[in-house]
Simulated scan of single mutants.
Amino acid sequence: MATLQERKVFREAIMKTLYEATEGNRLLGVTGAKLRDDLQVPDEDLAAACAYLDGEGLITVDWAQGNTPAMVMLTHQGIRLMEAEEEEHD
């Protein structure tokens, strides 16, 4: 299982990847398999990070069998968070 620091890195990477892939459109999503492959995150850590972000209201997850994220989408709150971070870095 990942350390606290690794879990935080996974969550941040998921949010950034979703935001970039969907261009901030909450009607678009990314498959769990693509996130796993792009980020090189173990399945159990991806599921845990997605469950955490879903619980925070930042993403929505369509779950497949075995607690595997099938499709992951940003929520309005998640988009606002990512836009605020983007503005901070400009």
Rank of each mutant, 00 (worst) to 15 (best):
M1T: 14
A2F: 01
A2D: 11
A2I: 01
T3W: 04
T3N: 04
Q5Y: 06
R7Y: 05
R7T: 10
K8L: 07
V9Y: 09
V9Q: 14
V9K: 12
R11V: 02
R11S: 14
E12N: 08
E12A: 13
A13D: 11
A13C: 01
A13K: 12
A13L: 09
I14K: 12
M15A: 01
M15Y: 00
M15S: 07
K16G: 04
T17A: 03
L18S: 00
L18C: 05
Y19I: 03
Y19P: 06
Y19F: 15
E20K: 13
E20R: 12
A21H: 05
A21R: 14
A21D: 09
T22K: 02
T22N: 05
T22Q: 02
E23M: 08
E23I: 05
E23S: 12
G24W: 02
G24R: 03
G24N: 12
N25C: 01
R26F: 07
L27A: 10
L28T: 05
G29A: 06
V30L: 13
V30E: 06
V30N: 10
G32K: 06
G32V: 08
G32Y: 07
K34H: 11
R36N: 09
R36D: 04
D37A: 12
D37N: 15
L39H: 06
Q40W: 10
V41C: 06
P42V: 04
P42Q: 08
E44F: 13
D45Q: 12
D45M: 08
L46R: 09
L46N: 03
L46H: 08
A47E: 06
A47S: 14
A48S: 14
A48F: 06
A48V: 00
A48D: 12
A49L: 02
A49H: 07
C50P: 02
C50Y: 03
C50L: 04
C50V: 08
A51Q: 14
Y52Q: 07
D54H: 11
D54G: 14
D54Q: 15
E56K: 14
G57P: 09
G57Q: 09
L58A: 02
L58W: 07
L58I: 01
I59S: 00
I59H: 01
T60M: 05
V61G: 13
D62Y: 07
W63M: 04
W63K: 11
A64M: 05
Q65G: 07
Q65V: 03
G66I: 10
G66V: 07
G66P: 03
N67G: 09
T68W: 00
T68M: 09
T68Y: 00
T68S: 06
P69E: 11
A70C: 02
A70N: 13
M71F: 10
M71N: 13
M71D: 07
M71A: 01
V72G: 00
V72Q: 00
V72P: 00
M73Q: 14
M73Y: 15
M73W: 15
M73F: 15
L74N: 10
L74Q: 04
T75R: 01
T75G: 01
H76N: 13
H76A: 03
G78W: 07
G78P: 12
I79N: 13
R80T: 06
L81P: 01
L81I: 02
M82K: 14
E83H: 01
E83G: 02
A84T: 12
A84D: 13
A84Q: 15
E85A: 06
E86Y: 11
E86R: 15
E87H: 10
E87P: 01
E88R: 15
E88M: 11
E88N: 12
E88A: 15
H89V: 14
D90F: 03
D90Q: 13
D90H: 14
D90V: 12
